[in-house]
Design a binder for these strands. Structure first.
Lengths: 82, 82
DNA sequence: GTGTGACTTGTAGTCCGTA
DNA sequence: CTACGGACTACAAGTCACA
């Protein structure tokens, strides 16, 4: 039987989820709420939540804002091992 | 005289330019053309050029595609020291 | 404090051309 | 090969109400 190849769309959301997972990892490690991060980054609370859940393909500038809010290097949000 | 505070927009494009500079650094180091990167990443040739020049606020998925095309970890595009 | 869906507006990203 | 522009379409940004 053919193992169904994952669609590009699934691949895309998978990558977004990976990013969201790392964000959540660093946020909870810093003991901060989504609201707090959103406020520090100047973003909407629900937007941050959506990013964490991998529902958003956010842009470079917002990645940098969020990294700032977390107090970490942006590159760390791309580390394979948290 | 008031030293004119840099507008948020200038700050934004400054960050985009930093990213573009790193992209160009890695691309030339790999001896690849913008066209080649664009092709590998499945993006438009002119779009890659615009990103390198800091004219575009590209999204997470395209950052990952470009890092892939360069054969590097996405996080390296955020390193302070190239 | 978070998840979710829906919605409008701005811009990301494409495609075509010129130099 | 790269910069730059115009015109377009797809989709991210940003916000909200409600669970």
């Amino acid at each position: 039987m053919e193992p169904v190849p994952p669609s590009v769309d699934d691949e895309a959301t998978k990558l977004q989820r990976q990013f969201g997972d790392r964000l959540r990892h660093f946020r909870t490690a810093a003991a901060l709420s989504q609201e707090e991060i959103a406020h520090r980054a100047g973003l909407d609370r629900s937007f941050v939540g959506q990013v964490e859940r991998g529902e958003r393909n956010l842009s470079l500038l917002n990645i940098l804002k969020i990294a700032d809010a977390l107090g970490i290097e942006a590159g760390r949000l791309f580390d394979r091992d948290k």
